[in-house]
Design a protein around this nucleic acid. Structure first.
Length: 475
DNA sequence: AATTTTTACAACCGCCAATGG
DNA sequence: ACCATTGGCGGTTGTAAAAAT
């Protein structure tokens, strides 16, 4: 915890940080000069807090730059406003979020995305900063654990920012407008590779492929249980029972909440008319250092290096009619999976989907080989009774209680319009024309397969990577 | 017990829109 | 219309504490 003492310490982190909010130059010591006065940066002291609180008590909020002028407080107006809003104003709640608050945050995020300030208006006493921090921590935690970002009964409805992350122009769609605003969308990295579709052509299959486990030791469990994994119920209602606590004004930007898409079997890739062109699945990692890694990328017949691409794309042998370009190839992309909001929907993967079954079997074989026949190595963190465990339990229950007809597949979002309204059909049921329309509508120019597919090597090697046991349908 | 990793938090940064001169 | 200032927002970073190894 950051110490707030009386000594007006200067935080070294601000060295070379440049100007802040239009204030003067940084002097490299955590202070800035404005109007001839050295402005402090870094943690606030109790004395500074007292000065600011007294000023606001006397003059009210606003006109923050006047604080420094009138009180001599060596803080810029921006800093004063932030300090007041986040720490000093009355009725601020401190401490951990209650389960109710967490639920509200999750549901709000599912609806409006990273609109922290708007979320804060729905959580009295909480600041946007707190909410943002909570969410970012949650994202990291669940990513590492390989869990969906949202519980099964919450489905992200927002659409706008889901796509911003990927709106870099591509050779195919370079004329489309792009947004400069990246977000912390979360593309969930489960122990299974998930080929998310939020920015991919809707005719693509969402696909789960167990990823190559990290080089031993320790091996991960990759056994795939087709029977338990082959059950999936339709998505639950959009809102949990307590979602009524969320004001309607915060529902989708369009003002109406789109209904959940009806569930229908998703045809297998084999049901698609051939020939299939290929889709870049992930970038060739630039940091392969082990023979096992090399073998995985070069000997696995399901992946092939697309030599037509300068960025060492690997391809899956089925795909949309077009290839999609990758953003700049970098090991960073590979090792830092992009964050996006994954959720699940049924995938009919058990009725003669030869390709998919082959892939799954292949992955299973790879897993068994890598794992030396051993299963079930639960990371320590998976044994703790936490909220996510409860969510996971519920999720598993939802998955397993229905008939063995479908398999859980993670995707980001249905094809939908700008208001987040779903087309109401499975991606594979979308025609090419419609798919192109969707692309046009969203400017879905490119995506980063590496972001979506591969777990970070670092994460994969860390002890905190969840085993398959932690993923519903995988045993 | 020492070290490493993760978490929680605070604060800063840059951008942008609103406002007023 | 232009420009500077101000305030707000979302993203990012740094750090201490806690947890894990």
């Amino acid at each position: 915890m950051m110490m707030i003492g009386e000594n007006n310490q200067v935080n070294a982190q601000n060295e070379g940080g440049g100007s802040s909010g239009g204030s003067g130059m940084s002097n490299g010591s955590g202070e800035e000069r404005e109007s001839g006065m050295m402005l402090k940066k870094g943690p606030w002291s109790a004395a500074e807090d007292a000065v600011l609180a007294e000023y606001v008590r006397a003059h009210g909020e606003g006109n923050w730059n006047a604080v420094q002028k009138n009180t001599g407080l060596a803080r810029c107006g921006k800093s004063c406003r932030l300090r007041w809003a986040n720490h000093l104003r009355p009725n601020l709640k401190k401490g951990a979020f209650s389960p109710e608050e967490e639920r509200i945050i999750i549901e709000l995020h599912a609806q409006i995305g990273n609109k922290w300030a708007r979320m804060a208006t729905q959580l009295p006493g909480r600041t946007d900063n707190e909410i943002k921090n909570y969410w970012n921590t949650r994202v990291k935690r669940r990513q590492r654990q390989g869990l969906p970002l949202y519980p099964p009964d919450v489905r992200p409805l927002y659409s706008d920012h889901l796509y911003r992350r990927y709106l870099q122009p591509s050779p195919l769609l370079s004329s489309r407008p792009t947004s400069p605003t990246p977000t912390s969308c979360f593309s969930f990295q489960t122990p299974i590779m998930s080929l998310h579709t939020s920015t991919m052509p809707s005719t693509l299959h969402p696909l789960h492929i167990p990823h190559r486990p990290p080089p031993p030791p320790p091996p991960q469990n990759f056994l795939y249980n087709r029977h338990s994994a082959a059950t999936m119920r339709p998505p639950p209602p959009l809102h949990s029972p307590n979602s009524a606590s969320i004001p309607s004004s915060l529902h989708s930007p369009s003002g109406s909440t789109p209904p959940p898409p009806p569930i229908s079997p998703l045809p297998s890739p084999h049901n698609q008319p051939a020939p299939f062109q290929t889709l870049p699945l992930f970038e060739y990692p630039t940091s392969i250092t082990t023979a096992a890694d090399y073998d995985f990328f070069h000997s696995n017949k399901r992946f092939k290096l697309d030599e037509s691409q300068s960025n060492n794309s690997f391809m899956l042998p089925f795909s949309h009619e077009q290839n999609y370009s990758l953003p700049s190839s970098s090991s960073k992309n590979l090792h830092q999976p992009h964050l996006d909001s994954g959720f699940f929907y049924p995938f009919n993967g058990s009725s003669g989907d030869g390709l998919l079954e082959d892939m799954l079997q292949e992955a299973q074989a790879l897993a068994a080989e890598a794992n030396g026949g051993r299963n079930k190595e639960l990371p320590k963190e998976m044994n703790s009774a936490t909220q996510h465990d409860q969510e996971e339990e519920e999720y598993s229950r939802l998955i397993n209680e229905d008939g063995p007809t479908s398999m859980g597949m993670a995707i980001n979002e249905w094809p939908c319009n700008d208001s987040g309204e779903s087309s109401g059909r499975q991606p594979s049921a979308i025609t090419d024309n419609e798919n192109q329309l969707a692309l046009d509508m969203h400017g879905m120019a490119s995506f980063s397969p590496a972001d979506h597919i591969l777990p970070t090597h670092a994460a994969a090697r860390s002890s905190s990577v969840g085993s398959w046991d932690n993923f519903p349908g995988i045993c």
